[in-house]
Structure formats: structure tokens, C-alpha cells
Amino acid sequence: MNVLPAGVADVLYLAAAVCFILALKGLSSPRSARRGNLVGALGAAVAVVTVLLSTDFAGANLAVVLGAVGVGSAVAVPAARRVKMTDMPQLVAIFNGVGGGAAAVVGIIELAEWSGAAPTATATSATAFAILVGATSLLGSLLTFLKLQGTMTSRPVVVPAAGPLMVLALVAGVGVGVAVAVTGNVWLGVVLLVLGLGLGALLVLPVGGADVPIVISLLNAFTGLTVAASGWAMSNTLLLVAGTLVGASGTILTLAMATAMGRSVTGILFGALRGGSTAG
């Protein structure tokens, strides 16, 4: 439905971005935390209603969108309502992972819709970043879930030659990412997605159970930056601002959590690779 003029939609997006800033501010202090979270939810509701009312939908796509939102809510609300207090961190990890996955899929769709005729090289670069880091966040978060849930061992898992593999995957990720940025080829984008999944596994497998919450926070910051990159690619200020807010605050929060536990982030990520164990 395209009933809202673009100017009105932009103002509503700005209001949503302000709600997100107030939400993070509120969540930083015990007395305002709950209200802060509700302000954030209000901002999200405003943004979603705005996009539904200000966009032209082709064919029956509006029905697809509304159906997906309905099913997603029907899955997420009971899961979040019924989860035990002790299981909340892994549920947050799942939510973070699917957010990263959504951003990666959005990137793939963009490449396909542009089909080699992307608006700018900046747009394809940002899309490549979103696909790679979104996929890293997706598989990394799912593995942190399995570790906390006890489905897989919470001890550090070091695959043979993990260090060189990590370097190889990073170099390949950057190389294919540049190729995607230059060509805008959607199949290279799919290769990039697979490389991102591999990076996520290599990043999280060597982390011990006690350090997992810090890694979830780091992957949360990753997903934030992924969303910012999507906003960059789509010229959408709300995605850009909200994603950057989460990327920046998530990084600070990760460092604060590591300091509170007397750990260093590099020690957590690479300790097991160097032979020292990561707590767990």
C-alpha cells in the first residue's frame, strides 16, 4: 500500500531512530530499563507500519510479507514467553543469529534484483559486507546456542590447522567480497555466504563455555554492523542509524563484559588456537 508520502515516511523513520536511542539509554540504568525496552518496541512498531504503508507491493507480495510476519510472531512470542530464566542467553543467541541470516538473505536478493546493474560500487561493497558478516553471525550464533544448550560440548573445539584455516577463510572472504563489490554477481554472493558460514564456525568452535556470553555479545555487534551495511546499500537511514547504534554499543558492551569477567576479547577468540585454553 502506498498511502504515506515519502516525506512523512522519512519523518516516522526518524522518530523510530530516536526511540531506539532512548531505548539503549533507558536500558543502561536499572530504574528505566523496562520502560526503555518498551520505547524500543514502540519505535520498531512505528517503523514496520511505516514501511507497510509507504511501499508499492508487486502482485501478491503484501500477502507473503504479512504471512511471514504472522508466522514469525507466532513462533517468537511463545518461545520468548515460555523460556526458562537460565535458558535466556541461548534464546538471545538464536534471535541474533536469525537476524544476521535475514540481513545476509536480503543482500543476496538485492544482488539478484540489481542483476549486475547496481546503483553504485558503494552499494555492492556494503551488500558484500552484509552477506559475509551476516552469515558469520548466523552460524556463529547457532553454535553458541548449541554450546550453551549442552547439545555439543562446551569445551573449546580446535579443528586441525584451525589457525591457517581461519586465515585462509578470511583471505578468501575478502577476495570474494571484493569480486562481489566489483561485479555484483549473485552467484559469487552465494559463495560469499558459504564462506561467511565457515568463518562463523571457525570463530566460535574454539571458544570455551564460560566465555560464550561474551562471544554472543560480539556477534550481536556484528549483526548490528551488518544491518548498518544493509541500510547503506539500500539508502535507508533507519537501518543505517539503528544498525550503527547496535554495532557501536554492542562493541562497548562486549569490552565491558570481558573486563567484568577479567578476560580479554582476543584471548577468548584466539586463546585456544595459540594453545592456551579459554575458560570453560
Binding site: 539503549l24 536500558l27 524500543g40 517503523a47 538471545v92 541474533n96 548490528g224 547504534l245
Partner: peptide, 12 residues
């Protein structure tokens, strides 16, 4: 809470 906020990728 920050995790919920990046769910705004829904708009994208």
C-alpha cells in the same frame, strides 16, 4: 535489547 533493535532489518 540491542539484539532486538537490529531486528529492524525487517524493514529492509
Amino acid at each position: 535489547g540491542a539484539n532486538a533493535i537490529h531486528g529492524i532489518i525487517l524493514v529492509g
